[in-house]
């Protein structure tokens, strides 16, 4: 484990300045810059549009895919990490019921980043909000500040980790939008796993992207828009 850490740190160090490892499916340059804000492009704003009409109650495919991809146990005890969860909601008046996935909303103005004393919580230029687990001191202030309960604290020693997704006891973690996949030109595991195509992932700034067009053609909302955090995840059919 610590071997991976040192390797990783070494990697970050060397990549911080120059590295722009380009993998270019779809003619786009993605940089491997997990812990490096500077290397991600600020012209990109990654986001998701979730169509709640397509999302089925009882279906947990996105959650399972996330757990597998990121090496989470999948347990749902009070101290277990849940990066993405299904929420069933029912309007108090009309009884209108909806099932939807909830994860880090990758806010443009993330309170978790504002309150973090060590800059462990940070936002990459492309809008992805991450925790640098080498800087996190585990104060949990970000968990108090997040309006969506998107974050989990690692309460115990972890085994069987995915080397692409290092996690650590005593630190806070959350949905990374599968940044390691995005940097390889893939889409997040949840979006890929959803058989009902309820999760549309893409660049909210790219006029040619499907998500760009759809956000402009169908009605969608941000959760707790009143807080003015401008989340990168939007919901349709609420």
């Amino acid at each position: 484990m610590s071997d991976i850490n040192t390797q990783r740190r070494q990697f970050l160090k060397t990549s911080a300045g120059a590295a722009a490892i380009a993998i270019a499916p779809g003619m786009m340059l993605y940089q491997t810059a997990h812990g490096d804000t500077a290397a991600a492009s600020s012209s990109v704003r990654w986001g998701m549009l979730i169509d709640t009409a397509q999302c089925k109650e009882g279906c947990n495919d996105c959650v399972n895919a996330c757990n597998k991809e990121n090496g989470l146990s999948g347990k749902t005890g009070v101290t277990d990490s849940q990066w993405i969860r299904k929420i069933e909601i029912k309007a108090v008046g009309s009884g209108h019921a909806v099932s939807l996935p909830m994860m880090c909303q990758h806010c443009e103005h993330p309170p978790c980043v504002d309150v973090c004393p060590t800059q462990a919580s940070f936002k990459r230029a492309d809008g992805i909000v991450l925790v640098d687990r080498h800087l996190c001191i585990g104060c949990r202030y970000c968990m108090m500040a997040c309006p969506y309960k998107a974050r989990s604290f690692v309460h115990e020693t972890l085994e069987d980790q995915n080397p692409d997704v290092p996690r650590g006891k005593g630190t806070v973690e959350a949905c990374s939008l599968c940044v390691h996949r995005i940097d390889k030109g893939q889409i997040p595991a949840c979006a890929e796993a959803c058989q009902n195509k309820a999760i549309l992932f893409g660049d909210l700034n790219d006029a040619n992207s499907e998500i760009y067009k759809k956000v402009r053609s169908v009605a969608s909302v941000q959760i707790r828009a009143d807080l003015r955090l401008n989340p990168g995840v939007r919901y349709q059919g609420l």
Binding site: Q82, K86, E88, I89, M102, R224
Partner: peptide, 12 residues
């Protein structure tokens, strides 16, 4: 998180 809705999930 969802004012005006009853909610339930695996995350309390």
């Amino acid at each position: 998180i969802f004012p005006g809705y009853e909610v339930s999930s695996s995350f309390a």
